[in-house]
Design a protein around this nucleic acid. Sequence first.
DNA 1: AACAATATCAAACGCCTGTTTGAATGTCAA
DNA 2: TTGACATTCAAACAGGCGTTTGATATTGTT
Lengths: 232, 232
Amino acid sequence: MSMQTSVNIKSFSEDTRKSLLSTAGEVFAEFGFHAATVREICRRADVNVAAINYHFGSKEELYLQVLESAHNEAARKYPYAASKDEPPEKRLEGFILSFMQGFLDKGRASWHGKLMAREMVEPTVALKRMVERTIRPRNVFLTEAVREIMGGKFSDEEIARSVFSIIGQCLFYSHASAVIARLKPEINCGADGAGQTASHIIRFSLAALKHMPLNKKGVTPFEGVTPFDGAK
Amino acid sequence: MSMQTSVNIKSFSEDTRKSLLSTAGEVFAEFGFHAATVREICRRADVNVAAINYHFGSKEELYLQVLESAHNEAARKYPYAASKDEPPEKRLEGFILSFMQGFLDKGRASWHGKLMAREMVEPTVALKRMVERTIRPRNVFLTEAVREIMGGKFSDEEIARSVFSIIGQCLFYSHASAVIARLKPEINCGADGAGQTASHIIRFSLAALKHMPLNKKGVTPFEGVTPFDGAK
DNA sequence: AACAATATCAAACGCCTGTTTGAATGTCAA
DNA sequence: TTGACATTCAAACAGGCGTTTGATATTGTT
């Protein structure tokens, strides 16, 4: 291993590593794992193309280490978990705002959130780890708040689906940003609109959680109705 | 082989075209435009690799024609638009169920819905056309129903965001299916669970639309509060 | 039957990808 | 300085991609 003793004016090794890690986070967050190319990463980091394989072994291993460091960085920056003794509504509020900032913000702070949003749509080998390490804990936290808000009359499945409904609203602004920009360019859905967006999702979701009717067992709203079978 | 008697057993020209169009729809819906390869399409269609460029000119042109025919097919199969004289709640119900079936169903029927969901996350040259041809009309239809349900007290932006909240809930089951499978495998989120899923989204959304509080102008729930600034 | 137009085919092309190579350079300990 | 090691570099590699080619086979028309 390297580890030169004493101080070095130029300790290239560590510099190149860190530079690559940082630049790769930027490029992966921008293009996703598959569309990002090692040549683009190395060009931005101003290092030779061979550097990635020398320092990390492969593009995939670099990606995994980027996720690792981005995770740690994000965990410091966005500790979504408000203290447990806050009322569930406050916890939900806090979660939604920090969750959305986590992928709408600009700069390194949002890399992990963007990578997570991409990993959902276009999974890589990292998905399993990301689910257990990041997504499941957040899901548990959110589920507990939602359960308290909804009261005791709903099944676990209904609660889980309500959590999905909340997350789905949030992720829409990440996954469908290209469509939003074309469809409703007047709506501020970027980083500076995160507060507005979160505010709407919170009001929408709290109203839903507090007023959603029970699902009549065995009866869907469409039972016996085929209103959209226009084609034969 | 024998007996090429009478009518052509193989009328290659049109057959190859249609076979390619159909197979390409399947492969594009499964992998998306970029990840799908012309070699895989041709392999499944059992035609030579040169066939795509001979009959369509390019992979991209094939994709555009696949979208065209998938659009027409889906428009016949899922005429989401319930008649305008139905109450808005019924129109919303109908839209959500048929929208979700549009990408959760199996087989050709769902190709257009799947391609649309992919196009949102990973736009191609086809996005603009898809927005104007499919997404915007649906958005208008849904917006009108939502506006009627919410009453006259909300701004256009609040209504548009509420539409996003509904669409976002639906698309979550398409965009995050890999995560759902890992996180909550017990929940039925596939084609046969579309009714359940739609039912939940409808109840959740109707409750939200009917009980959502007005946004106090200039005051977000977080005004002056920085509860998640854990890092310095 | 014979010709011209159309369609299929195996093979190759040019490009881009992640990765490897082997020589050159830099760094530290003796 | 010397030798050993770590790092950088230009260049090449192997493989996949969409596409093109030129020969071959099939079709429609006369």
